[in-house]
Design a protein around this nucleic acid. Sequence first.
DNA 1: ACCCAGGGTAACT
DNA 2: AGTTACCATGGG
Length: 270
Amino acid sequence: MEIIMKNCYIIECPQHFNLGLSLDCGQAFRWSFADDMWQGVAFGRFIKLQQTDNQLIIHNCTEDDFNSIWKHYFDFELDYEKILSSYDDEYLITAVKEYNGIRILRQEPWEALCSFIISQNNNIPRIKGIIERLCETLGDGEQGKKSFPSAEKLSTLTVDDLAPLRAGFRAKYILDAAQKVASGEIDFSKIRENPIEFGREELQKIKGVGAKVAECTLLYGFHKIEAFPVDVWVKRIMAEMYPDGLPECTKGTEGIAQQYLFHWRRMQNR
DNA sequence: ACCCAGGGTAACT
DNA sequence: AGTTACCATGGG
């Protein structure tokens, strides 16, 4: 008999939402599946989630938390039906049919930036390990429920302090990003307010941040869904399927199309 | 042991 | 302006 935690919030699921796919399609790195539930931390809050036929159950979540954080985090305010049904390209139709329910999570900008700095020339299981050690070592809160350490905190550290993370050559990039964010040299509110091109230029002022990491930060940290990160998998997709570029139907939502294609292509290899 | 990973930088042509 | 070696680490 299962013990239901108190502060359990239940809603009817929106259309086009698959919890497991959204949490495990390579856009976020702090969610894990155990005991029939997804669990993780975002915005400093530890929650567990289950998706049934038509319901989403969030444990350790008040109505206020849902309305102020999670509704936004899971992008429930965006009309995915409108976007996904506008794709008239055969590969996209296949990817959307097979992996319907992926949504672009609205992650915290600093966590997205730092996570995708760590992601460079790295594989997803190891990215998760480095981020877990980063949070357990330097985050706040109880063990296993730690927050993502702030840019302010990381900005005071040295590469030697980050040695336990085993992040390799990325450690110095993390620190440069933390320093530029903490000092205000990189201003997240200005990136959020301005057109995407501004964010591209700003973020690439950080050592170790090139076009791809900047696109990921803009897509997952600022929900600029026209951002189009090109990693090795998307390079393959472009070479194999779109030698003349993305189809017209993706204009303005390239990041969403990218996420479906990325996950679809990655699953094909296994 | 080997190849590769949600890349970027710097040093080359 | 367009290649290429190198960067740390460890998963598969």
